[in-house]
C-alpha cells in the first residue's frame, strides 16, 4: 500500500473512490474534535490528581474502600478486546468483505461495549451503596466527574454503532455510511486510549 494517506487513522484506500476522498476532510475534522475532547479529559484527570489527598478526601471513603480492582481489570480486558474487534470491522470495510463480516464485528464490539457498561454500572451501584457518592467529598466528586464521563462516551459510541447498523441495512455501503463507520472507529479507539489513563491514574495510581 504505497498510495498516499489522506488523513490520520485507517484510510479506506483509493479503490473506495468518493468515500475515500470525502474521508479526507471528515476524518480530519473528527480528529480535531477528538483532540478538543482530549483536553476535557485531561483537565478532569488533573482535577482528580489534585483532589487525591487527605484534604480532598475529607474523611470520606477512599480508593481502597471504593474501588473493585478485579472488576476494573475485567473492564479493561473487555474494552481492549472491543478495540480489536472494531479494528476487524474497519478492515472488513476497507477490504470490501461485504456487509456480513462488518455487521458481525460491529455486533461483537457492541456486545463488548454493553458488557463494559453493565460492569461499570454495577461498580457505581456498589459505590453508592457504601456511601462513596459525589456529595461526600471533593475526591469522590472528581471520580464521579471523570469515570462516568468516559462511560457516557462509551454509551454514545454504543448508540452510534446501533445507528450505523441500521443505516448499513437501509442505505447499503454508501460513501456516507463508510465515512461514518470510519469516524466511529476513531472514536472507539480514542475511548480505549482514555481508558488507559483511567485505569492507570484513577485506579492503579490511587491504590499503589
Amino acid at each position: 500500500m504505497k498510495h498516499p494517506t489522506l488523513h490520520p487513522g485507517l484510510n479506506l484506500g483509493p479503490h473506495h473512490g468518493e468515500a475515500h476522498e470525502d474521508a479526507e476532510t471528515l476524518a480530519f475534522g473528527f480528529w480535531v474534535f477528538l483532540m478538543s475532547d482530549l483536553i476535557i479529559f485531561g483537565l478532569m484527570f488533573a482535577t482528580y490528581v489534585t483532589m487525591a489527598n487527605p484534604m480532598g478526601l475529607a474523611g470520606g471513603p477512599g480508593p481502597k474502600d471504593a474501588y473493585d480492582l478485579t472488576s476494573v481489570f475485567v473492564q479493561t480486558m473487555i474494552l481492549l478486546a472491543s478495540s480489536l474487534t472494531f479494528g476487524m470491522a474497519s478492515l472488513a470495510m476497507r477490504f470490501e468483505r461485504g456487509r456480513g463480516p462488518i455487521t458481525f464485528w460491529l455486533s461483537v464490539t457492541l456486545l463488548l461495549g454493553l458488557a463494559f457498561l453493565s460492569l461499570e454500572v454495577r461498580d457505581f451501584a456498589h459505590m453508592i451503596e457504601i456511601g462513596a457518592v459525589p456529595s461526600r467529598s471533593g475526591f469522590l466528586s472528581a471520580f464521579w466527574g471523570l469515570v462516568p464521563l468516559h462511560a457516557l462516551h462509551v454509551a454514545a459510541g454504543c448508540l452510534w454503532i446501533m445507528i450505523m447498523m441500521i443505516q448499513m441495512r437501509t442505505f447499503g455501503m454508501v460513501p456516507l455510511v463508510k465515512t461514518r463507520i470510519l469516524r466511529l472507529g476513531l472514536f472507539w479507539h480514542f475511548l480505549d486510549l482514555i481508558w488507559i489513563g483511567i485505569f492507570t491514574i484513577v485506579y492503579l495510581g490511587a491504590l499503589a
Partner: peptide, 12 residues
C-alpha cells in the same frame, strides 16, 4: 501502551 495503540490501532 498509548504509543502502541496510536501506532497499531490508529495508524499514526
Amino acid at each position: 501502551q498509548f504509543v502502541v495503540q496510536l501506532r497499531f490501532f490508529l495508524h499514526i
